[in-house]
Amino acid sequence: MAGVELAIGNGLLGVGAGLALGLGAIGTGLAQQQIIAAVFGAIVEDPKQFGKGLFFILLPETLVIFGLVIAIMLMGRM
């Protein structure tokens, strides 16, 4: 039975890792879609805003990277 429990435990860890990464990616996407639309509006008005715009576009990418970090930490426990 211990083997089965271990397998279930590992499976759940895998699901957790997947959720961490996937939900992080969805979060990033949701945030970026609005930011990118706004930034492009700003760049059309004033191309000098490109640098600052890029800064804001890249802000939410941290979410998916944290997701990946958590996923790797979970995988390490398998």
Binding site: E61, T62, F66, V69
Partner: peptide, 15 residues
């Protein structure tokens, strides 16, 4: 903390 953890992207993007 998030700023320092954010450097994990050095690993993530590479992977």
């Amino acid at each position: 903390l998030t700023h320092i953890m954010s450097y994990a992207r050095l690993m993530a993007v590479g992977l």
